[in-house]
Design a binder for these strands. Structure first.
Length: 450
RNA sequence: GUGGCUGUAGCUCAGUUGGUUAGAGCAUUGGAUUGUGGUUCCAAGGGUCGGGGGUUCAAAUCCCCUCAGCCACCCCA
């Protein structure tokens, strides 16, 4: 018999309990923040029709996983070709176009995996299957919506105890205006953005040669952007920025929006040090039309962005006659987990069980089951021991699994109607009346913060 | 997609100029210890040396191919 080698597909991972337990806690923090901001949940299928997913961003079409059946019976037509979703934004736009009954504004959050066929790199928090936590607001052009997305991002990262993070803010309109100012030609917009985006990686000399390679006046561009950077950052001087871009309408327009978003974000509680206006932020996804933002950790520069998003007022219209303005962000669960791991703040937790009821002897089985039932009804997370093993083995198990308490009910205890409860961390063992066991554990767990 | 590095036990690794039956630590299981974990001691199990081909009397070791993993870039969450 041929044995199949057990393995996982490149860029995908199993989440064993000791990793999943703290990972789910992160998800809970994010979800609670989303709910506090008034977002409603949405889930969509992992599989979408290919034509729904493609054509939004040329670069990314190449990274879409198409699905091919191992034993396809019919030839796939363009309409029936299917693929794994690449992000959650495009499915959302599809949903917005497909259901006329959705409220406006429509605020939804969605926490689900997406798949991209690029090369995995764990140190950078990059995988082929990863979970995005998206929050988006459809149906308003108001900059307050963009500001609320920034505040939400700030709130989540703060709740996760990130001490130093930077939300970079810019605008597609502003960048388009800049590109026009520098090159006199809007067609250079894409190349202009890509070059600029590389600044923090390859420095100005590198960017200048990139500009030249793309027929963009390098010296002029460098001079303008250098000055822009001086007026931006964590305490931006927007009136100084305005003077630099002159009379270009798109640039002025975009800048005004940035300023409004920035100010409203501060009003919503975003700290100055965590928010920066950054003219070198470009972002790749082609569907962004207005404000764009992403979050990085200055302490972990090799890591990709923790969050990324922006305004995409034209996307829903690719599925509908109706044009629905939209803005939102994606928080990368795996990036967050990677960051916390590298900051040594992500601790493995093998079990959530609070008490193990040991099996002392056969005669005590019924009593143990009764105790377990009572405790479970009282909301305690309980495990029982199934086999007739020695105490040593049962305690060793509880220790390994970091189960805080072991309850033993042997002949002595049974005779007196009590239970011995040992706290494995303090090594202290007490006896409590059977009837008080739940109350005792609740109190003890509460003082331990569990 | 481009470039580089690395593959030996579940994990981290050692293995001499190619030389007998491939080792260690950790982990696992059992015992020392039949009412109680972490320490200690003893023992055991666990290996297609990533896979295939080649050179050789002889390959974990040298050569070729291939697969996988990692790192940087690209891009992004």
């Amino acid at each position: 018999m041929l044995r199949i080698e057990p393995r996982t597909f490149r860029g995908t991972r199993d989440f064993l309990p000791s990793e999943l337990i703290p990972r789910r806690r992160i998800v809970r923090v994010i979800e609670e923040a989303y709910r506090r901001y008034g977002f409603q949940p949405l889930e969509t299928p992992a599989i979408e029709y290919l034509d729904v997913l493609t054509g939004k961003s040329e670069e990314n079409d190449k990274l879409i996983y198409e699905i091919r059946r191992a034993r396809g019976d019919a030839e796939e037509t363009a309409e029936s070709a299917i693929a794994l979703r690449y992000d959650l934004t495009v499915p959302l736009a599809r949903v917005a176009a497909q259901y006329a009954t959705l409220p406006r504004p429509f605020k939804r959050y969605q926490i689900q995996p997406v798949w991209r066929a690029d090369r995995p790199q764990p140190r950078q928090g990059r995988y082929r299957e990863f979970v995005q936590c998206d929050a988006d607001i459809l149906g308003t052009e108001s900059p307050l919506a963009d500001a609320e997305i920034l505040a939400l991002t700030h709130e989540v990262l703060t709740a996760l105890d990130f001490e130093d993070f930077r939300i970079r803010l810019s605008s597609r309109k502003f960048l388009a205006g800049l590109a026009h100012v520098v090159t006199g030609d809007v067609r250079h917009f894409g190349a202009f953005c890509r070059c600029l985006d590389k600044l923090d990686k390859i420095g100005w000399d590198g960017v200048e040669s990139e500009f030249q390679a793309n027929d963009i006046p390098a010296t002029a561009a460098r001079s303008l952007v250098t000055q822009l950077m001086a007026t931006g950052g964590e305490s931006p001087d927007f009136s100084a920025t305005r003077k630099l871009v002159g009379s270009n309408a798109a640039a002025l327009n975009g800048l005004a929006e940035i300023e409004t978003v920035y100010t409203a974000a501060l009003d919503l509680g975003v700290s100055r040090r965590s928010l920066a206006f950054d003219a070198t932020l470009a972002r790749g996804l082609d569907y962004y039309t207005g404000a764009i933002f992403e979050t990085v950790l200055p302490g972990l520069p090799h890591l990709g962005s923790l969050t990324g998003g922006g305004r995409y007022d034209g996307l829903v219209a690719t599925f509908s006659k109706e044009n629905v303005p939209a803005t939102g962000t994606s928080i990368g669960l795996d990036r967050i987990q990677t960051a916390l791991t590298q900051l040594e703040r992500f601790k493995a937790e093998p079990s959530e069980t609070q008490v193990l009821i040991a099996r002392f002897d056969d005669a005590g089985v019924a009593k143990s089951l009764e105790l377990a039932a009572t405790l479970r009804r009282a909301g305690v997370r309980v495990e029982i021991w199934y086999d007739n093993d020695r105490m040593k083995k049962q305690f060793a198990f509880a220790d390994q699994q970091q189960i805080p308490f072991v309850a033993v009910c042997g002949p002595d205890e049974r005779e007196r109607g009590i239970v011995s409860v040992k706290n494995l961390a303090t090594q202290q063992q007490v006896t409590v009346p059977e009837a008080d066991l739940a109350a005792h554990l609740h109190a003890a767990l509460a003082t331990m913060g569990k």
